[in-house]
Amino acid sequence: MWALIILSPSKNTGVFVLLFCALSLSVYFLLPLFKKKLPITLILLAITYMYAFLFEEKLMPFFVLLILLYKLESAFYLSPLYFRSLLIGVNIILIIYLVVTVESASVLASLFILILLLFYAFWYLNTHYFNLIHQSQLYEQLIDEYRKVKRYAAKNEKAIRMEERTRIAREMHDSVGHKLTALSMQLEILLMNEKNDVLQSMKDIVNESLEETRKAVRALNMDDVEGISSVIQLIRKLESESHLRVHFTTKQGALSLTLSNQNSITLYRVLQESLTNAMKYGQSREVFVTLGTTPLGHLYFDIRNSYDHMKPFHEGFGLKNMKQRVEEAGGTLEIYQLDHTFIIEGSLP
Rank of each mutant, 00 (worst) to 15 (best):
T250P: 00
P312R: 01
G282V: 03
N277H: 07
S284Y: 09
K280Y: 09
L275E: 03
K320M: 12
Q262D: 13
M310V: 12
F288Y: 13
V287S: 13
Q252S: 15
Q262F: 14
H309W: 08
L299K: 01
I303H: 05
T290A: 05
I303Q: 03
S256G: 07
Q283A: 13
F313G: 13
T250V: 09
V289D: 07
F317H: 14
L259Y: 06
N263K: 10
P295Q: 03
Q272T: 01
Y281N: 06
T250D: 00
E286S: 06
M310D: 13
S256F: 03
T293P: 03
Y307I: 02
G253N: 01
Q252L: 14
L271I: 07
Q283L: 07
Q272A: 11
D308A: 12
S306F: 07
L291C: 05
T290D: 09
S260W: 03
N277P: 03
L255Y: 09
T258I: 12
K251A: 12
F317A: 15
L275V: 05
K280M: 11
Y281F: 13
L255C: 11
L257K: 10
L291W: 02
H314E: 14
L299W: 02
Q272R: 08
L296T: 09
G253T: 00
R304F: 01
S306L: 10
Y281H: 14
T293F: 05
Y300P: 09
G316M: 07
M310T: 10
Q252G: 10
G297P: 03
V289C: 15
Y281Q: 04
V289L: 12
T266M: 10
S306W: 02
F313H: 11
V287N: 08
K251Q: 15
E315V: 07
Q262C: 05
T276E: 13
L291S: 04
N277Y: 04
Y300L: 15
S274N: 03
Y300V: 01
D302Q: 06
G318W: 02
G292T: 01
N263C: 06
G292C: 03
T293V: 13
Y268I: 01
L296H: 09
N305L: 04
T249L: 14
Q272V: 00
L259R: 04
A254C: 09
Q262E: 14
R285I: 07
T249Q: 12
E273Y: 06
T250S: 13
N261H: 14
P312K: 02
S274D: 04
A278Y: 02
L259G: 09
S264D: 02
Y300A: 15
G292L: 01
S306V: 05
T266R: 08
Y268C: 04
G282Y: 05
F317R: 14
P295T: 01
F313P: 00
M279K: 10
